[in-house]
Design a protein around this nucleic acid. Structure first.
Lengths: 194, 194
DNA sequence: CACATTTTGGACCGATCGATACAAAACTGG
DNA sequence: CCAGTTTTGTATCGATCGGTCCAAAATGTG
């Protein structure tokens, strides 16, 4: 073998993710990435090939974390309606706790749109997974009678997904808990069984 | 007097706005700004002082246009509920027509967060104006009986504002008309009188 | 027609961009 | 303890960044 790496790759990706999260792709220089990760340029390029590739790793890391967290959250909750309630209030709590950090995926969509094919593929994959998760919740909610049965579960999923994005955007621009909660309350009511 | 400018300042701001809109603040170089506006560096710096200042002008221009368009749209519509319906479908039509351009304000919130005080002030002002507009619509809707009277008009405004942001974000990541319409339908139902 | 004033184009500034080259350092398997 | 392999720090690359300088060009005014 050879000389081992002196750092934890996963941890480095996490730090890089934080940097991109705060300042965006274009707004984060390779120098800033070195400082955020504590690595030298050589280590970064030797391990991750390029700034763009590191961003992809960071995006993957973020998306994976998010899906895992949300899957756990939704599964440990009770009825369909309660799952959506848990999702919204978890989002709000997180944003309040992190002082309006927002969402890396939301930021990335805003920054890139559909311009970059690799980014676009990640966004699409993440969206698909979230919609599948939410769609399943909607269906369960319709079965247990807590979610409006007249609605397409896919539409409910899309609505909830969009609502979460809206909340994260609100938070990033500095909206307070009260405002976010009033949005979540209306959104929840919208999909609840009548 | 002296030598007159060879270009229309307003038009130049419009072109710069388009460039920032597509690629963000950090993603738009001064060279790109020259090409987008058709101006030389000297003219840009002589007229707008700095990239940042030009961005502020572009943001102001965008916000003003938006408020004017939305004010007109909401005033020419009928009942409160119809106004919100018009708002959502106008948003969707616009996004479909422009192939998922999204919203410059949304993008700017995502890129800057609360980091830049001048940007933040603009975002806050634009948000305040939109919320006032939407809040008035909500109140009218409650009077004419088309909007849920049990709800705080401010909350309805916040919800509608967040929904529009959500739609623009969906569009920017490539969502189709159908998905956006299903979100709008649920959102509309949420605030309608029961 | 000359003067004062402004705009314009183009050269140019130091700083920083993302990325690479290279040799010293650090490790493992033999 | 040596050979082989990889990582690391440093120096550096050309390109581009945002911004400035300056002389030529273009106008209204006297």
């Amino acid at each position: 073998m050879a000389r081992p790496k002196e750092f934890d790759e996963r941890a480095a990706i996490g730090r890089a993710m934080d940097a991109f999260w705060a300042r965006g792709y274009e707004g984060t220089s390779t120098q800033a990435l070195c400082e955020a990760t504590g690595l030298g340029r050589s280590s970064i390029y030797n391990t991750f090939t390029s700034k763009h590739a590191l961003f992809m790793r960071a995006l993957d890391h973020y998306a994976e974390r998010g899906i895992v967290a949300r899957t756990a959250l939704l599964e440990e909750s009770g009825s369909g309606a309660e799952r959506f309630r848990a999702l919204f209030s978890y989002t709000i709590d997180e944003e309040v706790a992190h002082h309006g950090r927002g969402c890396l995926v939301v930021n990335t969509v805003a920054e890139f749109g559909e311009r970059d094919p690799e980014v676009k593929a990640r966004i699409e994959a993440d969206t698909r997974r979230h919609l599948a998760l939410l769609s399943a919740c909607a269906k369960e909610g319709q079965l247990d009678g807590t979610i409006d049965g007249d609605r397409d579960p896919g539409a409910i999923a899309e609505f909830a997904h969009s609502t979460v994005a809206g909340l994260r955007l609100m938070s990033r621009r500095g909206a307070g808990r009260a405002a976010m909660e009033s949005v979540a309350a209306i959104a929840l009511d919208a999909i609840a069984a009548k």
